[in-house]
Design a protein around this nucleic acid. Structure first.
Lengths: 169, 169
DNA sequence: AGACGATATTTGAAGCTTAAAATAACTTGG
DNA sequence: CCAAGTTATTTTAAGCTTCAAATATCGTCT
């Protein structure tokens, strides 16, 4: 049962030794660091220059892409946040006159949320600045590097999605 | 002044047209999606299998790497969260017997936080599972792809860090 | 020593977030 | 039709998070 003071050869290792996944861990931590840095900076600038929170901006961004409006459930799936979360977020943005909520005609359970003209106008102004910030934050990557990164992240996304289904010890 | 029904050649375009940064935006959204998916899954599994929150796990992970302990300020910088945030987090983990806090001998303002034996033992168990989850989530990437992604993220991190300093419209 | 500026932490207010339970409305199979 | 199951949303409780203001301590300059 000895787990070996004696070093094992590579093949044996692959089968018998607990695998070392420190590289994947490092990769994950780096991914997380990049996202956290950028997200934090965007959050800070949105607050400073537009006095808006990032969640509100994200919500308005989704609605800007759907002129006809979206239900809370749709928003919840798109934004990957809980339903309950959206209830409060929508509530506050509706109170400030940025959002409109009406009951769906085909389904009286569902609320259809959309941007008001005010909400749309404010969002467009913020979005323009936001786009520049992002371009600047990624500015040191060449076009080629951006494409490579895009492709690798697409693969990462698929890998993660695959892992979400299959159970794992 | 016509913004052109006539297509401009590449060089003129670069100088005269408002630049289009939609590609960078897409890159950022994809980065964010990957992180959110993975983070959400890790959060869910930590709760399910260990009844622990992700912030607590992250805090313990930092402390596990510093056997001698760390101050709140150090933790705050490492974890990229606010000081006030850590106060509560540490408070709760200390209450459950996972953390030790003692006043620094050299600086009576500073609290030195460290894992208790219980905290360390529980963390090590969680960390082992966590490492497997991460390896599995990134499992579809070849070694080569992992290396490329690592390198591109390193460059992204440097780019973002550079942009954090320089002001930007 | 005393005052000033910097650093470490805590507190308070507001808002975000989740999971789980509750409510309401829809849909489907008898 | 109606009961059972599903789906859309809200509510609740707990915890996370930030920013800004308040405390406390440190280090230094005079």
């Amino acid at each position: 049962m000895s787990q070996s003071a004696i070093p094992l050869d590579a093949e044996t290792k692959a089968v018998e030794m607990p695998e070392d996944h420190r590289d994947e861990l490092r990769l994950w931590l780096r991914l997380l660091t990049c996202t956290t840095m950028i997200e934090g900076e965007v959050r800070r600038r949105l607050r400073e220059r537009f006095d808006v929170t990032l969640p509100r901006f994200d919500l308005m961004a989704q609605l800007d892409k759907a002129p006809e409006g979206m239900t809370l459930s749709d928003l919840s799936k798109r934004m990957m946040v809980s339903n309950g979360n959206l209830t409060g977020l929508v509530e506050r943005l509706a109170a400030s006159g940025h959002l409109d909520r009406r009951t769906s005609e085909s389904d009286r359970r569902a609320q259809v949320i959309s941007l008001t003209p005010l909400g749309r106008a404010e969002f467009r102004a913020m979005a323009a600045a936001h786009e520049h910030w992002i371009a600047n934050l990624f500015g040191d990557l060449t076009r080629r590097e951006q494409e490579d990164l895009m492709r690798l992240l697409a693969k990462t996304k698929m890998s993660a999605r695959r892992a979400l289904g299959g159970e794992n010890a």
